[in-house]
């Protein structure tokens, strides 16, 4: 019976003591050396990744697969009584008008929030970078919305948007009075319904999301800007580049990794938008008339208010596929631009 080498009992292979041909040590060292160059790094990589990957497999991926599995079953509190339905929930998804609305809304939120955050976040970071006095105070102020709890945010913005009491409408009325007195009545703007108007509700909520997440973006960009060596600016300045050119050709390319992060993270977060939507209209979540409903909120309502956890899981799978697709496209488009 043939044994494969590594099955050989130790005692029967006293290789080290066996006489070697003269050229043998050299070749084996070279082989080990060659091995180490390409493989040593890989082995270390796997060693470093061992624990984290076990974490992801056990606490993130396995539960996610379980959750996906639930989308194929009718939900029951007792696992033994969950009946297999196949793709029935997915067929239901296709014809669910509420889901269609949630999908459209979610994409709309992303289309508003992600570019706004990128532009405003970067703009504010650059502004903050260009001042010296009061900079710490400004930073803390611009960061403050990010640390404010969702309930308090919803309360304050709910009042500001209020049709009958809110500051925005008070300002609009004052403005209209002012321009009317000047004989420019055509410039006046009537009070708006904001959150109560099915057409304005989504942009109104999106504004709150941008406002709250801006601090996050600003910190990311500030940290990124810190990493841009001053040397490059000086070189560009010597070459006669103006401020805009320096920004365009020095800052932006060097910020690319940070911008990739910013765009992808804010896209992923916005496609899962939930907290602000729930809180700002707590008694008609996603309303009025589903105008602010998101996929994540719909999923949550299905699972936890209506106990349709199987169907909610199918919605989760859909959301996952959507986010994965968008992220892959973004990674393709954004990462290719720059070589490291």
């Amino acid at each position: 019976m043939r044994r494969r080498p590594h099955d050989a009992p130790r005692s029967s292979a006293p290789r080290s003591s066996a006489p070697r041909p003269p050229d043998a040590p050299d070749r084996s060292r070279r082989r080990r050396r060659a091995l180490s160059l390409s493989t040593r790094e890989a082995i270390w990589a796997y060693v470093f990744l061992l624990l984290p990957l076990a974490f992801y497999a056990f606490l993130r991926i396995y539960p996610a697969i379980q959750s996906f599995d639930l989308s194929l079953h009718r939900w029951h509190v007792d696992p033994a009584q969950r009946t297999f339905l196949g793709l029935a929930y997915y067929r239901e998804l296709i014809g669910d008008p509420k889901l269609h609305r949630a999908l459209t809304n979610t994409l709309l939120y992303a289309a508003i929030v992600v570019p706004s955050q990128l532009v405003l976040g970067l703009g504010i970071a650059v502004l903050l970078q260009s001042v010296r006095r009061l900079r710490p105070l400004f930073r803390a102020i611009y960061f403050s919305p990010y640390v404010t709890p969702a309930a308090a945010v919803a309360w304050v913005w709910g009042w500001m948007y209020s049709v009958n009491f809110g500051v925005f409408n008070t300002a609009l009325i004052a403005w209209s009075d002012f321009v009317t007195r000047l004989g420019l009545a055509w410039l006046s703007i009537p009070p708006q319904a904001f959150l109560s108007d099915p057409k304005q509700a989504l942009p109104s909520v999106a504004a709150v999301v941008v406002w709250q997440q801006l601090g996050f973006q600003v910190v990311i960009f500030l940290a990124g800007l810190q990493g841009v060596p001053r040397m490059f600016y000086d070189a560009a300045a010597i070459d006669g580049a103006n401020a805009f050119q320096r920004f365009r050709f020095v800052t932006l390319p060097l910020l690319n990794p940070v911008m990739v992060f910013s765009v992808i993270i804010s896209t992923i977060a916005t496609l899962q938008l939930f907290d602000q939507v729930v809180n700002i209209n707590f008694t008609d979540q996603g309303g009025p008339l589903n105008a602010t409903l998101t996929i994540a909120l719909y999923m949550y309502q299905l699972a936890f208010s209506r106990f349709q956890i199987g169907y909610a899981s199918a919605v989760t799978v859909l959301l996952f596929v959507l986010i994965l697709t968008v992220t892959l496209i973004q990674l393709r488009l954004l990462q290719r631009r720059v070589e490291y």
């Binding site: 009042w159 209020s162 707590f282």
Partner: peptide
């Protein structure tokens, strides 16, 4: 009456 006269839960 108006809807959402006073904001909040």
């Amino acid at each position: 009456a108006v809807l959402n006269f006073v904001p909040g839960d």
